[in-house]
Design a binder for these strands. Structure first.
Lengths: 241, 241, 241, 241
DNA sequence: GATGAATGAGTTTTCATTCAT
DNA sequence: AATGAATGAAAACTCATTCAT
């Protein structure tokens, strides 16, 4: 951004900076997951990344900065994936199912990511103002939660979801529960399995199944579906109308 | 040596010790909630509790000790209350509802407690072996989760819950989700309200409502219960008519 | 000493005090050997002895006091034993051999005692004035080193020891070397065996043998002995006549 | 990253590091001798050396590190000097005498060094595994004790030493005694002189004289014996008659 | 005389951050 | 832009000893 040197050199610089940045973020990311964000010191990040402390301060002025940088990348990835997931679904119920399914897949395939979010939640609760996250969210996903609320609305309209749901209340209630469950399972992982005697993936998919059952409109005469995702339910076509 | 101290002195000593212990735990508890367990140093606890550092070390040998002592007290209280709640309920469905309702009440009336548990979860995930918690649990609640699993089983048997539930899977899935939701709401509190625009109590009760709907047996001709608790539900009576 | 109460009670007191004292000394003695005097805290001694800190301070006002009390007991025992050893020996050479032999037996049979003395030496080197030890020695063994010097003198006179020895120089030189060797072997113990590949008892007896060879008068025509002790040499009777 | 720094900077940095290290070691070394290793705290070393505590921890991570660093330097110096001493000696007896003499010179001229070794012995006895020292020794002096054992062997062969010596037993017995005597004299120093009334140097040289006399072959007619061990003795029968 | 609680004055160690080059 | 050294401020924990009962 700042016109430092001419074109070529600038790009070279840029590439170098980017590479350094990556080294730092990758090292931090790995360490954060292994030992917990709070337990990791700047010194360890420099050690693992191979960058000197003094150099690191030219990229990130403290650990928070690193955490937020990681968060931004994560949210971007997740947001894109989630959007892609929703694109394929034909109707509200399918979109809802796809969304929850996506979270289950994340838990199964990217537990590190979910664990990071769990850690972030804990820090966010205390260390940062809500605005900071909301700003970030609005950059990454300008439409906000409206998309999700819309799903409920649509589902009610097409009769696949219970009529007594309150769109923007229900969606947040459900999303919060699913996220809460997902992150709890990811961070407690093996401990949950030890205590409950069930693999976390099955627990989470059962959670999703029950929630979808709870959202679905009653008496819809036997919905049947062809879903390929491993979960529960999904979509009432044709609805009885 | 053993038969030295008579009744009085012992009790006096004991009472004193107990009072000191309380001062420390109360100070810690307050600080932990205000600023986060990780952020609190032993020095601060001594400062707030008014005991000298060296004295404190005669009661608790480190912060973990304090955390676990608080946890034990909390779990004891919660366990007792939860048991009392279940006693009054006439059938499985009522017991289930009562249980979830109890968690909603906790969130509404004792958010500090719930926030502490949320913090504990985060530490437990990294710093302590599963055995430690399981031992504590078995001391406080020797029956374990069996009580809960039994609820589902009973509900299936009396037709109030869906027949396709897997008792010990479903109960853990639901409990984990509710706990996850509850703790997330408690710790993010006002931030959730800012982002979602809904009070956390309503969000949580909606979560419970949806879950209960998801568990309840479908089109059961006339499930009727006379629940007086404040929650959710809103079940579509008269259906099928 | 201070006429506190009447006879009986005094004795009862005395017996009690003596028992408490013993408990403390025994605990300290054990701990000192296991983990090193410097590493042992007063708190540990109270813990192991079962006596409260505040009580202990009525017996010993600090760790040094305990160390010196142990030292006194040790020196008394050793001194008595050593004297007894010397009594049986018929002549200078036998007495010398018996003395050194006695030290070898101590190393073999009472390594703890020797290790304590090694530790004491290290502390004595820094923490206490020479007078303190000299006073103690003069109480326990009023004759001092004269006895030993006398042995050399006698041995020279009877022709069993080299004529060119300087009694009070040589005896101290030899005693210091033997003590130095003995304590080094006792405290380094297994490490010496690891490094040198020889059991410490054999090393020590070889040291004694060489020293005695070095002290003995040369060309002594036919020394022959009847020693029952396991060690070295001993004595030329009848000599030269 | 690797090919960054050219010659100059590296050396400059290095030189600085080395100077700091020296300051710390010198301060420690002085304090250790004056007041005893155990009595010296890291805080005092920083105070005397003039570096901040936090800086010091970038050089040595604890007191042990410092002790071992000093030990290494000491052993290197001593080892070199000792080797040089042996080079000049024409035969086994001369080498043996030179070796012991060297120890006497050390005691006379470098009592601090010897006192440090005495202190090290005491710590080594408790605080460190034998391997640690053996590793260091093998780095500094890869030939090990073989050189010394060889002296005895050679001396026996050329008739200057008693034939009944057991090379690797005797050498260790003698070395241990001499070292034990030397370190005891160095650490008790003035106290020994007070108690014994003789200067430590004379005492030590007398010890050496007696030991050498004990090792030397009795003059003339080839003593021969068959004893292997245990007691030794070795009294020359029938001789001289 | 014994007890148990209390404590002040250390000690080691850590870490985010700055500074001169 | 990068480096390596330096460091202030604090954190956790220890321990000999005293005091009120």
């Amino acid at each position: 951004m700042p016109r430092k040197k001419e074109k070529k050199p600038v790009n070279a610089y840029h590439a170098h900076r980017e590479r350094q940045r990556r080294r730092i973020l990758d090292a931090a990311w790995k360490l954060f997951d292994e030992r917990g964000i709070d337990r990791i010191t700047m010194a360890e990040i420099t050690l693992v990344s191979g960058v000197q402390p003094s150099t690191m301060y030219q990229y990130f002025s403290n650990k928070d900065d690193i955490v937020w940088a990681i968060l931004r990348e994560l949210m971007q990835e997740v947001s894109e994936r989630a959007k892609r997931t929703l694109e394929d679904a034909p109707n509200a119920m399918a979109r809802l199912a796809a969304l929850l399914d996506f979270l289950a897949d994340e838990l199964a395939n990217n537990p590190i990511r979910v664990r990071f979010m769990a850690q972030f939640d804990a820090m966010y609760a205390r260390d940062w103002p809500a605005e900071r996250l909301m700003t970030l969210e609005s950059q990454i996903n300008p439409e906000g939660f409206e998309v999700f609320t819309e799903i409920i609305r649509e589902g009610i309209a097409d009769g696949s979801l219970r009529a007594d749901l309150v769109p923007d209340l229900t969606i947040h209630a459900v999303v919060n529960a699913v996220i809460g469950a997902q992150r709890r399972l990811a961070s407690l992982g093996n401990k949950i399995e030890l205590e409950y005697g069930k693999p976390i993936d099955r627990l989470f998919r059962e959670t999703i199944r029950v929630l979808l059952l709870g959202l679905r409109a009653p008496e819809s005469p036997k919905p049947r579906q062809s879903r390929k995702w491993k979960t529960a339910d999904g979509s009432t076509r044709k609805r009885s109308a």
